[in-house]
Amino acid sequence: MKKRTSILGGAAAIAATFVVFVIPFIFIILMAFKDRQQSALRDFSLPTGFHFWENVVEVVKTRNWMMITAFINSSIITVVSVTLLVIFAAMVGYVLARRKTRWNGLIEFLVLAGLMVPPAVVPTIWLLQGLQLFGTLHGMILIEVAYNLPFSIILYRAFVATIPRDLDEAAIIDGARPLDVFFRIVLPLLWPVTVTNIVVQSVGIFNDFTNPLYYLPGNANATVQLTLYNFQSQFSTAYNLLFTNILLITIPPLLVFMFFNRQIVAGMTAGAVKG
């Protein structure tokens, strides 16, 4: 009896979520396989021919291989800023969790403020220009680090609190200096939350649209999210290419999702619950 309702309910839920959540993705895929003419109809028909490969080639070649540049740029920004985030945030989270000083309140306030307060865009541009960092990958990387530090710090601080202090002290007695304690004992033990951090932050930074839009103008510096505007124009949008592009930039998050599903969910909920 109970079993039957759960199967019926499951079937209904599967059908409903299929329509709501899966069909849009199927639509994207179908569009990416069509030629320009058929894609202009924007309907849910099967592709009349197999045009996926030529679409990919055209997308990649457009605007002087902008897609390749964009993937390289996005990868550099993502890898470097996530590396810095992991190290710097782990250091802060570690000392914040271990050492009680009168600064802790202020630091925690700043961390929470960083999660809530929207960045002041134009003053940041003004400042980046002053520092000769405006429109450079370096500047973009530092911006991503600055904006995403609070979330990573919260993740790390919560996790450091679960590592027994005795371990630090045993290491200190064993002769470890502060850097030894951190890099040889604590950081290795933070590995699970580091994986979470890497995964969650890379997805976020790879998908970031707003910040590159403001701080990284110019085609030479394009990031993948901005390539989406290559095939849209007011009059004739090349829908097959547009959706091929969407499909291409969805691949990295999809891979991450397939391999790190659990860490992402854990990280997002952990960070959220604390924040």
Binding site: P164, D166, L167, E169, A170, A171, I173, D174, G175, A176, D180, R184, I185, P188, L189
Partner: peptide, 24 residues
């Protein structure tokens, strides 16, 4: 010092636990 909780480094083998101080 020997701790009540033993405080063994969980990510190291017994060999490395014992040898950690010497390595440092």
């Amino acid at each position: 010092m020997v701790f009540q909780s033993y405080a063994l480094y969980p990510h190291m083998t017994v060999y490395d636990n014992v040898g950690f101080g010497l390595k440092l």
